[in-house]
Design a protein around this nucleic acid. Sequence first.
DNA 1: TGATAAGCGAGACGGTACGTCGGGTCTTCTA
DNA 2: TAGAAGACCCGACGTACCGTCTCGCTTATCA
Lengths: 229, 229, 229, 229
Amino acid sequence: MCSRTSPRPRATGRPGRPRSAEADTAILEATRAALVELGWSKLTMGDVATRAGVAKTTLYRRWANKNELVVDAVAVLFDELELPDLGSLRADIEHVVLQFAALLQRPETKTALMAVVAESTRDEPLRERIRASIVDRQKRLVLEGRQRAQERGELPTDRDPGAIEGTDDLIFDVIAGAVVHRALVSAEPVDQTWVQRFTALLLGGLGAAAAQAAPGARGPSGGPGPDRP
Amino acid sequence: MCSRTSPRPRATGRPGRPRSAEADTAILEATRAALVELGWSKLTMGDVATRAGVAKTTLYRRWANKNELVVDAVAVLFDELELPDLGSLRADIEHVVLQFAALLQRPETKTALMAVVAESTRDEPLRERIRASIVDRQKRLVLEGRQRAQERGELPTDRDPGAIEGTDDLIFDVIAGAVVHRALVSAEPVDQTWVQRFTALLLGGLGAAAAQAAPGARGPSGGPGPDRP
Amino acid sequence: MCSRTSPRPRATGRPGRPRSAEADTAILEATRAALVELGWSKLTMGDVATRAGVAKTTLYRRWANKNELVVDAVAVLFDELELPDLGSLRADIEHVVLQFAALLQRPETKTALMAVVAESTRDEPLRERIRASIVDRQKRLVLEGRQRAQERGELPTDRDPGAIEGTDDLIFDVIAGAVVHRALVSAEPVDQTWVQRFTALLLGGLGAAAAQAAPGARGPSGGPGPDRP
Amino acid sequence: MCSRTSPRPRATGRPGRPRSAEADTAILEATRAALVELGWSKLTMGDVATRAGVAKTTLYRRWANKNELVVDAVAVLFDELELPDLGSLRADIEHVVLQFAALLQRPETKTALMAVVAESTRDEPLRERIRASIVDRQKRLVLEGRQRAQERGELPTDRDPGAIEGTDDLIFDVIAGAVVHRALVSAEPVDQTWVQRFTALLLGGLGAAAAQAAPGARGPSGGPGPDRP
DNA sequence: TGATAAGCGAGACGGTACGTCGGGTCTTCTA
DNA sequence: TAGAAGACCCGACGTACCGTCTCGCTTATCA
């Protein structure tokens, strides 16, 4: 599950001294530590190098600039997101949303995520790197959750009437967007209560869509009613 | 409706030469122009000053730093958001979401919004300024839309069973979050189609909530069915 | 003996509010105080204004710039130099040299004198102001001393053979230059011993010149021998 | 004879890129050029850097401030002062005084010398730097000239009666002071005539001192009489 | 007595330079 | 070749003064 966040790879088996693998990890750790202490805007390459016990040259040999370094340093944290099968779509969603919220509360992600996204509005390669390292990693969870719910019969299969075409992206933006906005823009806690209310809203929407296309079919979580005691 | 975005106000009627009002507007305009041309990260105070035909000190006399300046420069754009009564909750939502998306596509907002939010994670006064200048301005729309829908009977009133307590904040984060995430993180177009699908999902969720509490009551937009030809 | 150091005079009896005389003196005093505390290079017009309890405008209405203000502030100190008749040229010289040295040791003159002279190398009006306010005030002493010595018969009169034409300027530069150089460049104390040795050298020079032109005539201080017990 | 004027030296053989020697000379040359064009007070570090084709940081890495830079830039000019043996003390003095006067007429020295001396009244390290780089370099000439004159028999040797103990410093301040004062304070030309009259005065003083201690001994330049046709 | 003409304190204004900091590149030596 | 060290160029930072300019107000002379 742990995809590689590799800095500017160089073919192995080349002549000359090989790159130090320790340096790589030391740099990424130092970057996260610096993010925690200083935040994005006060993080400097020189400081990261010092913390990592490494020369600035070594940083730039691996990452083109501060943005890409930070993306890589933070990306690995998104590997923590998992989707254990909790038996119902509702439970799965609530679980992953809470997980995601917890991740966003960490100082290193909190300060870094919006910053690199902001930078990416003017930096196409960076946007691509973010997509590959962070966004797709989250999108995969939506895909998995949807498939699992379809297997359980909580959602219509793609060929069913009522299946909403291309819905994965929509769901993803709604979930991730809502959580990020709550956590970083509104700056309010993403707690159990909020998550339950949000999940209810989302499942209601999914159910309504299914019901509208195929009246009589079971909506998500076995109908409009609560499946929570 | 146009709330003031005033920089570090100084009491009037005081001794000494009063602050130039022209400088204020020139600076804010110059800031927006610079954002369009250069983006957030390459915008410099010196450049803004030059564009505005103003000394750097005049900037710093009014705004403590780049962040606060940019918030004020961008905030006024959010005044454009309006909520004309289009006859149905669905139409109202679709309209405002499209409006908001259009605003986010503008280069000055696109590059600035995430950046200042990122900075605000480490800067409490900035967060407060953002809340006052930008967030609350948007939240107002949610409030208005909800009240209007309640008057139309599309949503249960607050005292009705089925009224979701404190839902305004949730709705706000869902709408704003989804649009922002789609536009800036996923970096995909927020077009008519997406907006309709998103609105359908949201209305479904609201309707399901209402139905769950008071079965038989009309959900939003007159029930689960489409009110669109 | 106290010549006026007037700032940009304005005719009296004019309509309008007359200039405050208190402001004048307060400014000059404040300038000297600032020179003592901060030295020339860290003295600022704003600070002087504040110390004097006066607006910056009031300074600039009187003096065109920092240099001219400082010259006037310091010039008045040179009024202290006097030439009491001590009975012999040697005593007169030693007295005035010690006086001058004491003046140069004061922090306000020490820091200001060389500074304004330095500025004057590129500022003709300033040079003229220095000449009028400071240099000529010192030169007068040489003139007086020479005339008094001539009356005593210690120096040949101007029409005597042996009278060195235009010697006043030379003597002035030698005396003032030596003292200034000793005090400010070499930065060594100008004490009794040094003054006596310097005076002996100077009188020797003057005497030799007289003797050369009119052998047998008395040199200064009644011949080569010491007139000091 | 050319003593080094080195900026903040750093040990060689150290790790890291060594300081650029070209930058050193380019900066000093640029400083002199800027002094000629702009004078001391309008010379800026940024301008010097630009002229030298060097970053401002490179300047500050070598010199702590404008004062020290200018001292070093100007000091090398004082290496030009030499004391060729012209056969008599009188000729030697006249020669060196003219040389020194010529040096002081150059715009770079004229504007810089007094300025740094003025600054040095409040800056002990600067004073020390001036002493080492400039003052001692001149004092050496006095020492040489005196020794040469003693070898010629024009001046009593140190152990002779009549030898004035510690006179070198006095002579130095008299010569340098008189010339500087004439050139910069009085702002009058130091030409052949003035130099001859000054030298005559000085030699007279020296001769009188010697004669007073050891009557009958030859004074400087072979007695009080003129050795000039 | 009221118009006119400064002077004055306060402080904003356009500039210019400061000295520092960070980004990203380069050069040297050592491993 | 990698890597540590550090000098280098560049450009922005936020501050400090400069000398000028508006303000509202005061204080004089002149009609």
